[in-house]
């Protein structure tokens, strides 16, 4: 599920075809990918594929929720001076597999502390900061790089970063909570489909699986992984079913322009044209009269290109 949403490139390409007054994402892989688009002068709707993703989208992209208050920061981000009783920690099975002892103590403490936060929006910001911290810890762990920043200090840094991220943001984004059936009521001008292929496992998926398990208070990674696969499967492009583009057809029904985006790696562009673009053009030919494929080189040594396929 590695792809780059190049928002300015997308809007520039669509500007030649139509004026954009609303954008709909039936799926998005990661909240921060929508940052640039959520600051433009049009309405933005997005379907979250899980409850925790909806929470992250709200916390980072909805301007109404504001920043985490200093009062709450002082109250709920204490430094743990002595190790906590590990037998009470529901995530103890992750010790030395995913996190070290100190990190596990903080994950336990932060989860309990979050439930003490009265305002739901503040709690969601706090949780979303833990998501970012987990991301940092896991990526350092993969590289066997010791984490030099203290957990409580990192929490402060992340919440500060969050405050900067939402500064000047207006609430223009509407988030559907993991529901594919609900299309936006008004006519969507541009529908954007980020395409994902097969059951790819990468750092972002691992993070979301671990975060989901943590937020739900259980240590069963395999169960969280299965749930994630089920949630993602309906968005995946299956090359063995080249004519099955029902979902794309259905969800773009209200839009003037449909944009399909993906990032290719280790496969030449001609193969994507043959195996993906042509079947899609056939499937959508009754709905759209024209289509246009755009490509951008990212790294030619490994055939990495970003693709943008427009239907209008």
């Amino acid at each position: 599920m590695t792809f780059r949403l190049q928002s300015a490139w997308l809007l520039e390409a669509v500007a030649d075809i139509s004026t954009v007054d609303s954008v709909f994402f039936p799926f998005i892989h990661r909240f921060s990918a929508l940052n640039w688009l959520s600051r433009r002068d049009f309405s933005l709707s997005v379907n979250a594929y899980s409850a925790s993703q909806a929470m992250l989208l709200r916390a980072w992209l909805d301007g109404r929720n504001g920043a985490f208050s200093d009062r709450n920061l002082q109250k709920f981000n204490q430094q743990i001076k002595n190790p906590l009783d590990l037998s009470l920690n529901p995530f103890r099975a992750w010790k030395d597999r995913l996190f070290d002892r100190q990190q596990l103590d903080y994950l336990f403490y932060w989860r309990e502390a979050a439930f003490e936060i009265e305002e739901e929006t503040q709690r969601e910001i706090f949780w979303s900061a833990v998501y970012q911290i987990m991301s940092c810890w896991l990526s350092n762990r993969v590289c066997e790089m010791p984490v030099e920043c203290r957990p409580d200090e990192m929490m402060g840094l992340m919440l500060n970063r969050h405050a900067e991220f939402i500064k000047g943001r207006e609430a223009k984004i509407s988030i559907c909570n993991s529901s594919l059936e609900e299309l936006p009521a008004e006519k969507t001008c541009l529908t954007v489909f980020p395409l994902i292929f097969g059951d790819e496992e990468n750092a972002e998926i691992t993070l979301q699986v671990v975060f989901d398990a943590w937020q739900n208070g259980h240590d069963d990674i395999e169960q969280a992984k299965r749930q994630m696969r089920v949630q993602l499967r309906k968005y995946q492009i299956d090359f063995s079913k080249p004519d099955d583009h029902y979902l794309i057809n259905r969800l773009s029904a209200n839009s003037k322009v449909a944009a399909l985006i993906w990032s290719g790696l280790d496969l030449p562009p001609a193969l994507y044209e043959q195996e993906l673009v042509r079947p899609l053009q056939n499937s959508l030919s009754t709905r759209y009269q024209k289509s246009r494929l755009l490509m951008k080189a990212v790294d030619r040594t490994c055939d990495a290109y970003d693709y943008l396929l427009l239907f209008y």
Partner: peptide
Amino acid sequence: RWDGLGYPDNLKGEEIPVA
């Protein structure tokens, strides 16, 4: 940025080309 909070596209981790 590696954590996805940079600009202009908020790419994260290995989405950002190594160079």
